[in-house]
Amino acid sequence: MRTGEVFDFSHSLVPLEGAVDNKQPSPGEWAMMTGAAVALLGSFLDFDFEQSAWGQGLFPVATLIAIYCVAVGVVVALRRFAGVDLPDRLAGFGWNQLFLALGVFAAVMSLFWLIAAEEAGPGLFLSLAGSVAVAVGAFLTVREQSPGTVG
């Protein structure tokens, strides 16, 4: 990416020409799906105060991280593997925009939890890693599918 280049994230997951029948997930999509799985796993492990993200006092604030990541991972998997025909846009947002927003929000929440936590457990670190992977995957997907698009 050149300095100052702007990508248009508003485009939905429209495959590039010549890649219409390609069922193989792109690196960005792999990152999002893997990140979602990692964040989901992390939500069941020790998050803070020896409680999981589903535990008393943490649910559903800490659980939002896993929910966001899993939502992204499930939609990507449905579109890529199950061939589910979802609408191009949702509430005025392209899918890439939603993936990016959810990934970034999840990563920011994980980071803030890491600062807030008094006894951060492996679940929190996995949630952070997973949500960052989802956010990075969303960026990569945009770069793969809308290269050099000016917003």
Partner: peptide, 22 residues
């Protein structure tokens, strides 16, 4: 006009929804 491809209206909607959800 746009930040990372998001219009300001979209950013406000996403950020507001995130704050309300939290």
């Amino acid at each position: 006009e746009r930040v990372l491809g998001f219009s300001w209206n979209q950013l406000h909607l996403l950020l507001g929804a995130q704050a309300a959800l939290m």
